[in-house]
Design a protein around this nucleic acid. Sequence first.
DNA 1: AGAGTCACG
DNA 2: GACGTACGTGACTCTG
Length: 929
Amino acid sequence: MSFGEGCHLHLIDGSAFIFRAYHALPPLTRKSDGLPIGAVSGFCNMLMKVVEESAGHDAPTHVAVVFDHKGKTFRDDIYDKYKANRPPAPEDLRPQFPLTRDATRAFNLACIEVEGFEADDIIATLARQGREAGGRVSIISSDKDLMQLIGGGVEMVDPMKNKRIDSEGVEEKFGVGPNRVVDVQALAGDSVDNVPGAPGIGIKTAALLINEYGDLESLLERAEEIKQPKRRQSLIENADLIRISKRLVELDQNMDLDFTLESLEMKAPVADDLLGFLADMELRTLSTRIANKLGLEAPAIPDAPAVSSAAPETKGFDPDTYEWVKDAAGLQTWIDKIYARGWVAVDTETTGLNEMLVDLVGISLCVEAGEACYIPLAHIADGGDDLFATEAVAEDQINLEDALTMLRPMLEDPAIVKIGQNMKYDAKIFARYGARVAPIDDTMLLSYALHGGLHNHGMDTLSERYLDHKPIPIKSLLGTGKSAITFDKVPVADAVKYAAEDADITLRLWQMFKPQLHEKQVTKVYEKLERPLVPVLAEMEMHGIEVDRDALSRMSNTFAQKMAGLEAEIHEKAGRPFNVGSPKQLGEILFDDLELPGGKKGKTGAYSTGADILEDLATEHEMPALVLDWRQLSKLKSTYTDALQDHINPDTGRVHTSYSIAGASTGRLASTDPNLQNIPVRSEEGRRIREAFIAPEGKVLVSLDYSQIELRILADIAGIDALKDAFRQGHDIHAMTASEMFDVPLEGMDPMIRRQAKAINFGVIYGISGFGLARNLRIPRKEAQGFIDRYFERFPGIHTYMDQTVEFAKEHGYVQTLFGRKIHTPGIAEKGPRAGFGKRAAINAPIQGTAADVIRRAMIRMPDAIQGLPAKMLLQVHDELIFEVDQNAVDDVVGVVRHIMENAADPAVKLSVPLVVDAGQGANWAEAH
DNA sequence: AGAGTCACG
DNA sequence: GACGTACGTGACTCTG
């Protein structure tokens, strides 16, 4: 049947519909493997409607479902910022794009996309063809950009409101007829698509001007005549930009299409194809509905056990099936598989654990459970028994640079999700080889969001626990201790089995964990607090901080001398030489030789010689104080002034810590290798170590820290009005507490009283006990208990909070932060003497965890906030961020960073107390803090 | 490898 | 009524 009068063409804006379906529907996943299919399901429902309507009086005779083709369009050449504001499509939507094409074909409808053009252009061209052929055309879309096509038998149908829009409807919306819509849009611009337009002119004004001057060109030519100076100026100054805008919004109605309108004739779905597809997607309801409609029996969709339930293994692990990728052709096959899939599990093998130093040895990939490969890149051939064999490149491996050239576009492709276990590690490795891996998903972080507090989140733990599979131990390949080898020396055949298995495990964990985010209601935690932190931390770690090696070296020497002096003195007082660093020997000297009071302690039966014990003994004997001094110096030297020098990276000359994101159960980060979160500050001598952390010439270090963040959060969570008011009014919180508790005036407060109140405030955060407070304040336990009773009396909300939190933990097995992070508290089930630990941890976790969430949010927003400013975020110390800033930009940076930090809870959580940030700057960390 | 000690928030 | 306690980390040293 040729297209003409009496025919009715439906043009469905497929791409727009996918987004609508995605956002309107809850995130549905395919039960068997967790594939996200929410948008696909919505899309199928929409197509079903089209098919159902085909019998009605207004039925389409011809249908085309039109999609945007991926990649650039001709509009990007006209204006490089076109649609530049668009965020990339959500991770769980991307794999659904190809599936909606499949759905369209399964419904036996024409599925159309053309490279270099948007769906709108194809719709425009088809609409013109349909109109000129004398038929009716209905555009199924609510995109206002398509309104320019209306008229002459072309109408739009808003699929959501089920409303028809004709020429009158366009007038209503734009104030002009369809033929002038582009002129109005060119003037008004569009912030969503980043069409510039004329600043200060919206749709209303634009319509007014077009109606007055007839069309856009006349208006621009006669712009001088406009009376209002602002409008006149805007049009004159932006004439070129407006003309560009018009070219952006104007749709191409004259594309060369390689098919005819006739080919769009509507055909009934082929039952096998359609039901097969729906069965594949495991869409039972829809499948049944359609089967009934077609008078067929719905195919049985096996009720696959949900992946989240135990023993999900459809396929076992078989190391012999993993592929050794030996050449470019083999690699290309895998890249093709990845593009067909939309995601890939990736794992890198390297010569060590320090991402800043090690070399890449190989890469493993996995696209489907059991289907994994290893790409050896820098393995060294086995020299056999010949000790003098020169190291040679192993056979059957691709040149590293060639492989990376092939992989880089995939690793950076926004449409391909790269899944890893601790992706920060791999992303940093790839970054050093010139690939910015994005977007990413991380099974370690998925587990952290789901199971925080229950167990650690290393791959071995996760695999054994959730896949019931014990991975090949790395030790079996590398050996242990001194004789351990690096991964490049591992025979490739062995490496394939180990490395590919890791990628396989990672993919299987991802398929299991990802759908559980929604079930456990921690999607936001993962998406807002975990995943976006990865690139931020990677950046900080790679940047590192400058450390003055000579200053550390000088301090080490000074400490060594002082220690030698102290050691001699200690030996003399002890009466005989011994190892001062040995608590065992020290205990014997103190309690056996010198017969000082104090006893055994601990399961080992050894004497306890901790700082508090030695402090007590200092009144009895001269030696303990000397040992304390010696210990302090020993600590400073071994842990800081010596060790930090070894951590200076030879290439960058800076120190690069590594943050573990999933280490602490509360949501805090932990810094390792070296730990830069416990650099001394409390003692004068220790604090001098911070002088060695410096900024390069022309820059300074800037430190910003939250003031009393945990107490503020406690005040909010527990709803303590007195505390909240004090924070709102900027009062000294510890003095206020003291005044409230001991009935003393704020003026002329005794520092001792304030100190006690401060200790109580901290104690509350930790789940206070009489014993703990007594020990901290060195007061009788009865007295400490009296303080606590009084505190609860004055701030009754605290006690309620503690009881309710413990109750919640007992009932649910976890507690929550204000941002929804779940911290599991298995310790709460402990009976007997250990019960207190569980309770206190449960009380502390929401407070510490909420503070951790707040600074995470600030850090995640920081790169955008300081973009363009000469500032780099270097370190995080729980409530403090340290930046390296150009000297002349400090004030600007402090302003921006403080604003981000103080408002970090917004808009997810509205705190009832203000967050306050203090700032400092200086040539080194000691000055900045 | 585990205990003891001590650095930080 | 006794238990045995502040919360969260990481690094270093000694010891078996």
